[in-house]
Design a protein around this nucleic acid. Structure first.
Ligand SMILES: [Mn+2]
Ligand SMILES: [Mn+2]
Ligand SMILES: [Mn+2]
Ligand SMILES: [Mn+2]
Lengths: 228, 228
DNA sequence: TCTGTTTATTAGCTTAGCCTAATACCCTGT
DNA sequence: ACAGGGTATTAGGCTAAGCTAATAAACAGA
């Protein structure tokens, strides 16, 4: 029934950012949104006003914003588009893991629903994007997973790499070179004190992962949650 | 050397329109551009001013505009993108002949050069779009053809259908149903007076084509120009 | 509790692109 | 040569989306 007026590129990107920032619960703050979109905070204040007037978000002044059900639906639709595009570019057009995000970030606003579903069909309705993130269904459902970063993984734990972030091509290439791609099984061997590196074993290989990298490498318990 | 600043969607569509309107020589007038883009003439006057300031077009007040070499390059690049997208959607994703134009009209502004060349490669560097229009090369060369409409074809001539227009899905479906797709060979049998229909033979079939349709069905002499 | 710092909002501006209404220009027929 | 009609431009306004500078609110440390 909602008269889904065509959203602009900016609005779509705001909704996605707010979704990501509130995914673990709580509010998305003005400055978090500004940082994520690389724009000035006052610009966010302005947009927040418009988005709450159109009912896509709820704004609590000086606290932050959350998506309304309508806003959440729109955000999940964009995330679906983005991730299907990433899989398509990787699998059908030989794109590199690290390069798809930027391309998808633009294309997500231009593709029709019809094209996305054709792509999804050609790919056999993939459930994860190339970075390991789950793809929402066309109906707007998304898999929830209990993830922690490698920097927080317990020593001795058996874990599986789930997501390596999607926006830094150089980091993704480095992770791929280390063999730390989504789906890889790891055993956590040790972690040096004072925010030192974590050592993991993958099959017969041993890798030392610096703290900065480990903090952005999301993992799940083996056997926990849905399977890949 | 030209510091190719990123053009906006609007600017790209203006340049394409001006290219099409000046392809047979002469100027594109304000009202022609306005009609083609479905916007008001004063909006065109405003954009014309900006485009000529940035050196993409040459404006002769009260006469019209023409593309500069720089503007022509940009226009041909967009036309290449558009047509490659149309072929890709048709051949790789099962799109209908009549539906690709609209999708390409949006995507052309969002795809990277890299993606277009990947698509072109996957297709074996196609030379014509699904409507029969030639695809400019990456270097910016485009095939020139001597085309006339079926309404102007001489009685008795052997001709080949080249282009059926690209923007009206219903008309394209009707043309396809008649078997009048690009590449079809025809013999012109007769034309009724007072702007009456033209009768053609295609293989063993005979078709009667009304004047309105015939005026938008572009054809070439058999043996003339480049081959399909 | 006060006060300084951080964070958010408001005020005021800019640019791109569109619009309508008013005006200016060009051309053609008399 | 000139009057009308059509086309183009100018004038003036609007919305989306960004910016900086100024102000207000919230928070945290003493
Ligand atoms: Mn991504
Ligand atoms: Mn985006
Ligand atoms: Mn087209
Ligand atoms: Mn377009």
């Amino acid at each position: 029934m909602t008269a889904t007026a065509q959203l602009t590129r900016s609005v779509e990107d705001y909704l996605k950012s707010i979704f990501h920032l509130t995914n673990q619960g709580g509010f998305a703050t003005t400055s978090d949104i500004a940082a994520m979109l690389e724009i000035a905070p006052p610009s966010v204040s302005g947009m927040v006003k418009r988005l709450s007037e159109t009912g896509l978000i709820e704004h609590v002044p000086y606290r932050g914003v959350q998506l309304t059900p309508q806003g959440r639906r729109a955000a999940l639709q964009m995330i679906r588009r983005h991730r299907i595009l990433e899989v398509y570019l990787t699998q059908q057009l030989g794109y590199d893991w690290g390069d798809v995000h930027e391309e998808a970030e633009r294309l997500e606003h231009a593709v029709s629903e019809k094209l996305i579903e054709k792509m999804a069909g050609a790919l056999g309705d993939p459930r994860y994007d190339p970075h390991g993130a789950p793809i929402p269904t066309a109906a707007g459902d998304i898999e929830e997973a209990e993830l922690f970063t490698l920097a927080d993984a317990k020593i001795g734990a058996s874990i599986i790499v789930r997501q390596g972030g999607d926006d830094d091509a150089a980091r993704l290439r480095y992770l791929a070179a280390l063999g730390l791609t989504p789906g890889t099984h790891l055993t956590v061997l040790e972690r040096q004190p004072f925010n030192g590196p974590t050592t993991v074993r993958s099959g017969s290989e041993t890798r030392v992962v610096g703290q900065e990298l480990a903090e952005q490498l999301w993992c799940a318990e083996v056997g926990g949650g849905g399977n890949r």
